[in-house]
Write a protein that binds this DNA or RNA. Structure first.
Lengths: 369, 369
DNA sequence: GCAAAATCTGCAAACGATTGCACAGCCCCT
DNA sequence: AGGGGCTGTGCAATCGTTTGCAGATTTTGC
């Protein structure tokens, strides 16, 4: 006896299976499977394929991804691991990747690692259990075992935004050194000479690359990098930026400009500068990195290095799809070019503080409760 | 012959199955299953349980979530549908929900609907295929079939942030009417009388509730709501806010304050006001809703209604877990209380423009490139 | 000391799809 | 007219778990 009379007048209590559709269409379950899979539909006669599609439609049939995945060992699902979704640079990247992946028929799973290696590891294992077909990792830092785990479970993985120096995994990142060079050159052109660097947390490629870029940009301008103070923040966050900037300015009160490794740090830098009664831009120039959403609206608007968020997500997805179809095929390490977007957080340096070319000094606004 | 010699010296090429563990431990696969499931471990003798755990450990065994899900009809996965991850109010909600769900052993799947009903529908179907155990919907609008679909697939669902007036689904939202009343009262207290409302897009509960709240707050203050202009933006976005504010000010040039249904709209309102050569705060006061990240740093800092992002995500997760264990148990409709956070975007109204109590008028900053 | 109860573990049937293989027609060619 | 290709469909094994049931062993009660 069938699990359910096909002509039951009541609303279907359970989901239709492939068997129900087969019965409804008067064919074998395997035929249903073939009719519904675009790749195999051509094996069937037009009439049967149509009849099956019709029956499936009528029953509201949806294939169980679990059962299919169990057999095929693929889940048509990609996981994206980000360090922190609340940081606004990630959503645009995720978004772009998601769109490209959806085109290819993949569903997307987003998860936060909290910059916690243990949690990252747990998540990768969890994803492995779910047989994800690929991993987009925006979260790796030095010592992260995510890549090793992925390799062990034979899950294709692509790095986004952050590289992992020793690894051979495909990656799409920014040209961080070139980006920082843009910021440094801008400040030098404005006449600044005492420039400090607020670096990112240890172990993260964006931090080390930008730090190296800072030094080599100075060197290229004929300045000894050893004279330029560098201080690393404990995290890419506003509070960490506040603490580090305070320390930096305490140690080097004559600084006239600070190159931050990231926009989040700038927010903290703004606070630290305001706390000393100084004005960002007029007294101390600040540059950021990422051009994350909303930094064009803060006060003063942040001069920062714009990265190609969308392009990054899209091409990482592209690379992952390639890696899935042809594992180990083209191991690429794509570096996207950044650009400088000049806004109001930098003014002329001491050499030409009153020069006509200097942008109008911004007037900070007292922040309320 | 076993698929793989247990003592093979090479790195394991394929993943260990429950059968491999059984062989390694010298027991039956069903015993392994029981030993590894905390709920059934007590059926086994201590010694066997230990032996199995040990073998599993040695083989690096990870259960296939697919196979287990196929059998149990549960995937230990929850999907969260948001209209737009790029809108910064959602990540904190998602984050809080994710944390609570992880505690309960659920993995979380986040997806964007783009405010597109078709895409939302597609996503729910996709989630059904993956047998998600529950749905957190932050995306529903009038006419959305997501809830109906979820019901059809018998997937427990909870609404977040947005309600759906006709529906009986559990929901956790803000008390939008009370929130707007806070903003209106603040403006009235400052002496404003010609207040307009920049409403949200049609069909979204937050828009209609806030609009209703606006009118009733005026009425409560003895002002005829019919005299207060209301214009709905096409979407909760800055460009939509810009367009709508421009139209609103064109039609009602004497307005001294605008209550926006959402912070995103405020960003557009700021642009529209600046485009007429006016200053936000000094010339026209603006209030927002959500207190999304970074609005405390824009220029001038936004006076807005703060909602309980984290609490919203957490209690929605809680409610969903309850709904999963006891379907239809407690259909609750939780409204979280908002508070007003006063910053710099509102000044005294015409009645007391020069009054001592009026906040220092902010000076807008010219935005760069 | 023996039956009954309690405790542990194994057996085998699901769960719902996919896919290599076999086979039944049919057409065409010689 | 009869055999050799095609084409289209059915058969049955398989993916890796979970779980009701039953058998085997030990413990308990009298």
């Amino acid at each position: 006896m069938p699990r359910r009379a096909p002509d039951a007048a009541t609303t279907p209590p359970a989901r239709a299976t492939i068997g129900d559709v087969a019965r409804e269409a008067g064919v074998h379950p395997s035929t249903v499977s073939r009719a519904l899979n675009p790749a195999t539909r051509s094996m069937l006669s037009e009439a049967v394929a149509l009849r099956v599609a019709d029956a499936a439609q009528r029953l509201g049939y949806r294939a169980s991804a679990l059962a299919a995945g169990l057999r095929t060992r693929r889940s048509r699902t990609i996981a994206i691991l980000v360090p922190d979704l609340v940081n606004p640079i990630f959503p645009p990247i995720v978004r772009a990747a998601e769109i490209r992946l959806a085109e290819a028929g993949y569903a997307t799973l987003v998860a936060n690692t909290d910059n916690d290696p243990a949690r990252e590891e747990w998540l990768v294992s969890r994803m492995a259990e779910h047989l994800v077909d690929g991993l987009l990792l925006a979260s790796v830092a030095q010592g992260s075992s995510a890549l090793a785990l992925a390799a062990r479970f034979a899950i294709p993985a692509v790095l986004v935004n952050r590289r992992l120096p020793g690894s051979t995994a495909p990656a799409v990142t920014n040209d961080d050194r070139a980006g920082i060079a843009l910021a440094v050159r801008h400040l030098l052109d404005l006449g600044h000479t005492r420039i400090g660097h607020l670096a990112g947390p240890a172990g993260v490629s964006t931090a080390t690359d930008r730090r190296a870029g800072f030094r080599s940009a100075l060197r290229a301008a004929g300045i000894d990098p050893a004279t330029a103070p560098i201080l690393a923040a404990g995290a890419y966050s506003a509070p960490a930026g506040l603490a580090a900037t305070t320390a930096l300015l305490d140690a080097h009160p004559t600084l006239t400009a600070i190159v931050c490794a990231n926009d989040m740090l700038c927010l903290g830098a703004y606070d630290a500068i305001a706390a000393r009664g100084l004005a960002v831009g007029r007294d101390i120039s600040v540059t950021g990195f990422n051009d994350m959403p909303f930094v064009d609206r803060i006060c003063p608007p942040l001069t920062t290095v714009r990265i190609q968020h969308a392009e990054m997500g899209r091409s990482a997805a592209e690379m992952l799809l390639e890696e899935i179809t042809r594992p180990g095929g083209t191991r690429r390490d794509l570096r996207l070019g950044p650009t400088l977007v000049v806004r109001g957080s930098c003014a002329g340096g001491p050499g030409r503080a009153l020069g006509a070319a200097a942008p109008r000094p911004p007037i900070p606004h007292p922040r309320g409760a």
